[in-house]
C-alpha cells in the first residue's frame, strides 16, 4: 500500500510541478528561442528582463498594481467581513453572495463591463482603473479570509474590553482587528498573488503604460518566443515562493506566540 501511495503522490507532484520545472532551464538559454534542449547557459535573458524598458515597466506595473489593489481589497474586504459578521437571514445571505460574485463571474464578462463603465467615467487606461479592477476580483478572497478569522475571534473578549471601558471603536481597533490579523494578512497575500496572476481583465482595462508582467508575458508569447518569457516565469516562481514562505513563517511565528 505504502509504495502505491508514494508512487501516486509522486505522479501527482510531477504532473503539477513538471511544467514549472521544464520552464526553468529555458530561462538560462544562451540561444534566442524558447526551445529545449537549450543551446548553452547564459544570464542574457535576465539582463533583457531587467533592462529592456517594456519588461522593466511591466515589472514595476505589476508591483504597483499588486500592492495597491491588494491593499484596497484588504481594507474593503475587512470592512465587508465586519459588517456581515454575526448576521444571518435571507437579506444578509444575499448580500454575502453578492460580495462573492466577482469570483464566479468570468473575467471576460467583467472586463467588457468595466471597460464600458470606465470609458464613461474616464478611467480607461489608467492605473486607478487597473487597481480598482484587480481589487474587485480580489475582494471575495479577502472577505473569505477575514470572515474565517473573525469567526474565531472570541466575542466575550470584545465584551470584556467594553466592560473595561473601551468604546466600540477602541474595541474594534485594539481587540477585534489584532485578533483577526492573521486572516487579514492572509487575505492580503492571496489578493497580491491574484493580482500578479491576472491577465484577462487587465487586457481590457490596461493601456500600454499599465501593462503588467503577466500581460507582457502573454503578449510576448504571441509575438515572439523569446526566452525572456522564461526568465520572467523564473523570477515569478521565485517571488511566489518567497511570498509563500513569508506567509508560512508569519503563521508559524503567530502560532508560536500564542502558544
Amino acid at each position: 500500500m505504502g509504495v502505491i501511495k508514494f508512487a501516486w503522490g509522486l505522479v501527482c507532484v510531477i504532473f503539477l510541478m513538471g511544467p514549472l520545472l521544464v520552464i526553468l532551464p529555458i530561462a538560462f538559454n544562451a540561444g534566442s528561442f524558447m526551445v529545449l534542449p537549450i543551446e548553452g547557459w547564459s544570464l542574457r535573458w535576465f539582463t533583457v528582463l531587467f533592462t529592456d524598458p517594456a519588461w522593466r515597466l511591466s515589472i514595476w506595473n505589476s508591483l504597483i498594481v499588486g500592492v495597491a489593489s491588494s491593499a484596497l481589497a484588504t481594507v474593503l474586504g475587512t470592512l465587508a467581513a465586519l459588517g456581515l459578521r454575526g448576521h444571518f437571514g435571507l437579506p444578509m445571505t444575499l448580500t454575502r453572495i453578492a460580495f462573492l460574485l466577482p469570483m464566479a463571474t468570468p473575467a471576460v464578462v467583467l472586463g467588457v463591463g468595466m471597460q464600458l463603465v470606465y470609458a464613461r467615467i474616464g478611467l480607461s487606461s489608467s492605473y486607478a482603473g487597473v487597481i480598482v479592477g484587480h481589487a474587485v476580483l480580489s475582494i471575495p478572497l479577502t472577505i473569505l479570509s477575514v470572515a474565517a478569522a473573525l469567526a474565531s475571534v472570541d466575542r466575550t473578549a470584545e465584551r470584556a474590553a467594553a466592560s473595561l471601558g473601551a468604546a466600540p471603536p477602541k474595541v474594534l481597533w485594539l481587540v477585534t482587528l489584532p485578533m483577526a490579523l492573521p486572516g487579514i494578512v492572509t487575505g492580503f497575500v492571496f489578493a497580491f498573488a491574484n493580482s500578479l496572476d491576472e491577465v484577462v481583465l487587465t487586457i481590457f482595462l490596461a493601456g500600454p503604460n499599465q501593462r503588467t508582467l503577466a500581460q507582457q508575458m502573454f503578449l510576448q508569447l504571441r509575438d515572439n518566443l523569446s526566452p525572456a518569457i522564461a526568465a520572467a516565469a523564473f523570477s515569478f516562481i521565485i517571488a511566489t515562493v518567497c511570498v509563500g514562505v513569508t506567509g508560512l513563517w508569519l503563521r508559524h511565528r503567530n502560532a508560536a506566540r500564542s502558544r
Binding site: A157, A160, A161, L174, V175, P178, M179
Partner: peptide, 8 residues
C-alpha cells in the same frame, strides 16, 4: 467563564 483575556 472562559477568562476572555486578550491573546495578543
Amino acid at each position: 467563564q472562559n477568562y476572555a483575556l486578550f491573546p495578543h
